[in-house]
Design a protein around this nucleic acid. Structure first.
Lengths: 157, 157
DNA sequence: ATCAATTGGTACTGGATTGGTACTATTTGG
DNA sequence: CCAAATAGTACCAATCCAGTACCAATTGAT
């Protein structure tokens, strides 16, 4: 299954939360409580988002985080990049091409780059404003890993 | 980083290998040797692909695997589905929506489905024939996890 | 000035996932 | 009837990830 980490998942939830009601700054504690997420995680994620320039941070009492740009100017790709590094579907989509150990055997070559580009385009096409406004048919979002038996995934092909 | 497992990566290499020179059937051992991959892994992957209907298996002496359909009729999405279950970028893209533990907190909702669809479309648009024919500028493919220091990924945005 | 709230940074840990192996059963051509 | 090959299952070790803990730095309020 192609997937992003839960950290990124949380990150998007936090960003959308901040985008929805504009009343900055938001402390990590407030956001954690509002969304029911573990505070240390939230803190860690916000820090990363601030370092990436997506959030502005204000230290000290009454401090907190606020969006660095308008929601329309922040894409899903931005958030994912900030939290897990640039998007790449396989490890071979790297700059350092000659480090590949299977180089002489590998003939699949550059097509993954093409796929990566399309995926990136898709993610860049979705911005925070879109994400913070519920679509026509709102649905549940995550499911905890706790799910004991194999989750039956939907094949929306 | 959005990613697929190495198993899937191997699977695509194996499929492209079989698509390139049509001389079936291929034994797991022959494919493993040709690509320099560990035989047990190759065997496991081929089994999964056969179970998914992408390969035909022939038991016994002189047996092996062969493509079940023409290369043009097998997409990257097919292979990924076969090896890691249906594609979903987050765990919430599941059918069983009401199982979501954060239901009342989650407002990001259905947009990921949209993104998933686009990604699926991208992967369905690439077939085995494409993948088995090197593109204009062939490049190396994987890099072993061994890479000690943080890989500097290319941000092809 | 001092305190308390808040971000910043780093290091650690338990558990899940993944990559890979081993062993045995089954099928089938020679 | 043997050897080659797939089929199935169980297992192990290394890695990665989610989450925690701790302390330093900053800053508004009193």
């Amino acid at each position: 299954m192609i997937r992003i980490t839960r950290e990124t998942d949380y990150g998007i939830v936090l960003m959308t939360t901040m985008a929805r009601d504009a009343n900055p700054p938001y402390s990590a504690a407030a956001l954690a409580k509002q969304r029911g997420l573990p505070l240390p995680m939230v803190s860690k994620i916000l820090k990363a988002l601030a370092r990436a320039g997506l959030l502005l941070s204000q230290r000290g009492a009454l401090g907190g985080y606020s969006l660095a740009r308008r929601p329309e100017a922040i894409s899903a790709a931005d958030i994912i990049d900030a939290l897990e590094g640039p998007i790449a579907i396989t490890e071979c989509s790297v700059a350092d091409l000659h480090a590949c150990l299977h180089e002489e055997n590998c003939a699949v070559s550059g097509h993954w780059h093409q796929i990566n580009s399309v995926i990136r385009a898709a993610l860049k096409g979705v911005n925070l404003l879109d994400l913070s406004r519920p679509p026509a048919a709102p649905v549940a979002f995550w499911r905890q890993r706790a799910a004991a038996e194999p989750v039956h995934l939907v094949n929306n092909s």
